[in-house]
Design a protein around this nucleic acid. Structure first.
Lengths: 208, 208
DNA sequence: TTTTTATGTTCTCTTTATGTTCTCATTTTA
DNA sequence: TAAAATGAGAACATAAAGAGAACATAAAAA
């Protein structure tokens, strides 16, 4: 993937920051107007470059219905550049509590992988025997599969998110807490969607 | 690699210190303005020298999209400025195992205090019930006193260094492990020299 | 269905931005 | 004083960006 030019970055950032403002996936003509450009053809060059870079995609196959950001384009893009996005808090049994405004946390290379990562703050004690405490920050590699024994962020029934050890066998998935007061949960594979793998952890001992 | 001139060093330091302020990799014209220069051609000479020295590079091949610091320069910078000295390993019951060559670890501001800090790697399980495991990195604020209940790096009898909870009362000092298999040690105050306080912690889950 | 319109794509051409290479003058340093 | 360093500015080459025409085809309308 070749590096973006300045204008391409500008346009991507415009899309990233203003995408919600469009009622429908914006067409080239609409984008031209928003960007103050007169030529669809010129814009198309930039859009193509962004598609090649994997940052945006046609809304539905090759049909003529506008463009949209690729899944997590914003996140990936940020990940290549500087710090990691801090996206919210994760507590066993609840959806990830997303922040209205994602901000970015510098994270030592030591604690990341070379894949896109993001940061969550842990709520609750479900992993305390693994040394992961309430309030700790965890660095999560974005990935949709796991090896047994890894600690994963899993979304259950499209609703609850949780941080647990995983054990997968044919027909069932075990999500195992590191807290003897809690019990292992057993699910059907289709109930569990892996959202990432724990690769790093940080704790601050200062009072807040 | 030839030596930098004074101006070249000045310009490099400016770049290093202000790189983040540029929304996009800066162009020669932008740099001219920032540096208060009138001539792109003059600046170009310095920039070329810095490229030859391996400190900066064109952002994207030879294309016209501005310049950036090389990865090496960024690392060096991080090492001098934002990073903490990694001085060695600490295991209960032994002196700190100092490294021959101290190197530097970038540490998020979140995990430090505003006082001088350094980094140790933990050996052993004496604090495992406090979620501090073998292999973790701990950020230590350099300080020679502690409040009761803080986790400290303590030097005992000028010989052993250890990471423990501290409880001080008139005439005695308790160093308390967070491991029910280990016992609290009681010392006379003059035996114990506090070397720092735990303020942050990091763990990597990647295999090494 | 057929026709029309909207949308994306491809192309050429022009303009602008950016980096590069000069010369020359001035300042700093040995 | 001589050499090196620095800076201004002109001239140039080329990458990047933009305008606009022409076309293909999906979507919508008749």
């Amino acid at each position: 993937m070749t590096e973006l030019t300045r204008r391409q970055r500008q346009i991507f950032e415009f899309l990233r920051d203003n995408y919600e403002r469009f009622a429908y996936p914006p067409t080239l003509d609409e984008l031209c107007e928003s960007l103050g450009m007169a030529s669809r053809g010129s814009l198309h060059k930039h859009i193509s470059a962004l598609i090649d870079a994997g940052l945006i995609e046609p809304f539905s196959g090759s049909k003529q219905t506008g463009i949209r950001l690729t899944a997590q384009a914003q996140r990936d893009y940020a990940a290549c550049e500087h710090a990691l996005p801090y996206v919210g808090k994760i507590a066993a049994g609840k959806p990830i509590e997303a922040l209205a405004d994602v901000h970015y946390l510098p994270v030592p290379a030591l604690l990341k992988s070379d894949k896109p990562c993001y940061v969550l703050q842990v709520k609750g004690d479900s992993m305390k025997e693994a040394g992961i405490f309430d309030g700790d920050w965890v660095v999560i590699e974005q990935r949709d599969y796991a090896r047994n024994g890894e600690i994963v962020v899993a979304l259950i029934d499209n609703h609850e998110a949780t941080l647990k050890y995983i054990e997968q066998s044919p027909g069932k998935v075990l999500l195992i807490p590191a807290n003897s007061a809690m019990t292992t949960q057993i699910y059907a594979p289709e109930q569990v969607q892996i959202q990432g793998i724990l690769v790093g952890q940080m704790r601050s001992y200062r009072a807040h």
